[in-house]
Every structure is written in structure tokens, then in C-alpha cells.
């Protein structure tokens, strides 16, 4: 199996796993955590599903003339998501509350990022990463204590 084929499989399987993780996010076994977050007012769960669906769509059509553009777009978005995940993991570490579904989702993004990274697009990736960190630092709102409003 060629490297391209493996990458195609990775680009389909991991977004699917990510969607599954977000769908089953509400399930709790030993305790139900109140860890919640929004990005620009939207629940992270929704953002996560939309993002992974977007990645799936990018991997479905045949490359053709747009292959370079699609690859670059994927790298920029993955780097942005990685930057966002860095902010989210930091929030969990500071609050000392961990969401295992979210961490597994972050791992999917990390694997996708490493698999898709190319040296040619390193500056695009760096730009995406910094943009992701900045966007989540500004627009992410997290809450840990479940309070009546």
C-alpha cells in the first residue's frame, strides 16, 4: 500500500473517530464532569463535529487540479485546530479537570496533523497554528463549576 493510500485512510478514519467521540461526549461512567466550553458562543462539541465533517469532505473528492489547494487548506485548518487544542488542554490543566473525550479528540487532530504535514507548507502550518492559538485565546470561554443562572 502506497503512502498516499495510507494518508487517504488516515484522513477518513480519524475524522470519523473524532465525530464519534463528540457524539458520545455526553456519556459518563464513574462521574459526570461539568467541564464545558464555547467558541464564539458555539458549543465546542458542535464546532468539533463541524470541523471533522469538513475534513471528511476535503478527503472525499478526487484531487485533480485542486489537490495542492485542498492539501494546503487541510494543513492550515489542522494546524489551527492544533493551536486551539493547545489552549483547551492548558485550560484543563489549569483547572485540574480533564475531559477524556476531548483529549482523545485532540489526539486525533495531532495524528492527522503529523500525517498531513509537509515541509513545503511549513509556513502555512505555522500561520494556522498561531491563528488557532490566538482565536481560542480570545474567543474560547470555559466553565468548570456547574452554577444556576
Amino acid at each position: 500500500m502506497s503512502k498516499g493510500h495510507i494518508l487517504k485512510i488516515v484522513n477518513i478514519v480519524f475524522p470519523a473517530i473524532g465525530i464519534g467521540l463528540m457524539v458520545f461526549y455526553d456519556a459518563c461512567t464513574t462521574g459526570c464532569s461539568s467541564l464545558q466550553g464555547t467558541f464564539m458562543g458555539l458549543k465546542l462539541k458542535v464546532i468539533g463535529i463541524i470541523f471533522m465533517v469538513f475534513l471528511l469532505v476535503l478527503s472525499l473528492p478526487p484531487g485533480g487540479r485542486n489537490a495542492d489547494f485542498v492539501r494546503r487548506l487541510r494543513i492550515i485548518f489542522l494546524a489551527g485546530a492544533l493551536g486551539g487544542e493547545a489552549v483547551l488542554v492548558r485550560f484543563q490543566a489549569v483547572q485540574d479537570v480533564y475531559c477524556y473525550f476531548c483529549l482523545a479528540f485532540g489526539l486525533c487532530i495531532l495524528i492527522l496533523s503529523v500525517a498531513n504535514f509537509t515541509k513545503v507548507d511549513r509556513y502555512w502550518a505555522l500561520g494556522g497554528l498561531l491563528s488557532g492559538i490566538a482565536a481560542f485565546a480570545i474567543f474560547f470561554e470555559g466553565s468548570v463549576l456547574p452554577l444556576y443562572r
Binding site: G31, C32, S33, S34, L35, Q95, V97, V144, L145, P146, L147, Y148
Partner: peptide, 19 residues
Amino acid sequence: VFDRYNALITEDMIKATPS
């Protein structure tokens, strides 16, 4: 009562249930 609940949740730093 909700205000009292909030005060207790904040005081005890409740982040998960059951606690």
C-alpha cells in the same frame, strides 16, 4: 435556594457529580 446552591458549589469547588 439556587443562590445558596451556587454558594455551596463554589465553596466546595464541585466539578463533577456525584460528589
